[in-house]
Design a binder for these strands. Structure first.
Lengths: 157, 157
DNA sequence: ATCCCTGCAAATCGTTTGCATTGTA
DNA sequence: TACAATGCAAACGATTTGCAGGGAT
């Protein structure tokens, strides 16, 4: 499901398509397209870095200075509920967001610099089915995180 | 690596072995075996429910009324640092702990009642290697969570 | 006897909420 | 114009921390 290659910047055309998808999803849900929401949504469509809330906030504020952190949170909650953004929820550091590939897929997280990569791992879906079979649970969603050191940080240590 | 069958109570002998392992790990690290630590550690060795901090605290207090929540947290942090307990860190609800199989392994989490199962999924290790290969990250640890409904809750809905 | 561990309370940090004001549809 | 969205500040909940007193080795 993750169509994009790891950590490449999104081609303009592709991020434009995501912006359109997201705005349409908002409209379909009877939600208004405010400038603040549009700003958040553009950042989500363009970022390959899996930004944190704080990071999104900084960027929104830089082009829309009155925006509040609460609005960013509310927008993210809304987009999540429409399955237009994937929240990577971590325990002790804050969440990170993936707006380019909102369907669940595995991530590699660098413990040193916080970089996140998401190469395609086709086994994921099959593993979800295996988990359903062996546990008896109905599986709706997953979060598969691998923690370690990114290539850049490996060298530095 | 997960030797135990899903959600079966630990055989006494097995949980006793875990208690011994943990106390030994503490001793090896030059740490003291206090009654509070022993209480936490016993609960971890026996529980198949992947208890929350609060749940552990309740149980410790019931047999050792002066214990504080902070001590439970400190003990868990200590045991984590010695790889004697696995923390399942969730974003919006608190963490849950696995003291019976402290090596990373996949879990199924019920969104309704919070039950957690951990059947053996042999693919996990191979997937970690595949992730390392495709991302270039050095992978040290993983957390593989599948969210949905447990068998009991499926019926109730 | 030493010094680590405990227990308490206060601090922290990410996230959520209440409410008056503003702006989109 | 009506009603939903914003922005601010206060509330929240899980976890951490500082510190004085107590207990394990």
């Amino acid at each position: 499901m993750a169509v994009l290659t790891t950590n490449q910047p999104a081609p303009l055309e592709q991020s434009q398509r995501r912006i359109d998808e997201m705005t349409q999803a908002l409209r379909d849900a009877g939600q208004r397209i405010t400038p603040q929401r549009l700003a958040v949504l553009k950042i989500l469509a363009k970022s390959s870095e899996h930004p944190s809330v704080e990071r999104i906030y900084e960027q929104v504020v830089s082009e829309f200075p009155t925006t509040s952190l609460a609005t960013v949170y509310k927008t993210l909650t809304l987009l999540k509920s429409l399955d237009q953004v994937l929240e990577l929820g971590f325990a002790h550091w804050g969440s990170r967001y993936d707006g380019r590939s909102p369907n669940p897929h595995p991530h590699a997280v660098c413990q040193r610099c916080g970089a996140i990569a998401d190469p395609d791992l086709p086994q994921a879906e099959e593993m979800a089915q295996e988990m359903a079979r062996r546990s008896g649970y109905r599986i709706d969603r997953h979060q598969l995180d691998f923690f370690g050191l990114c290539p850049a940080c490996r060298k530095k240590i």
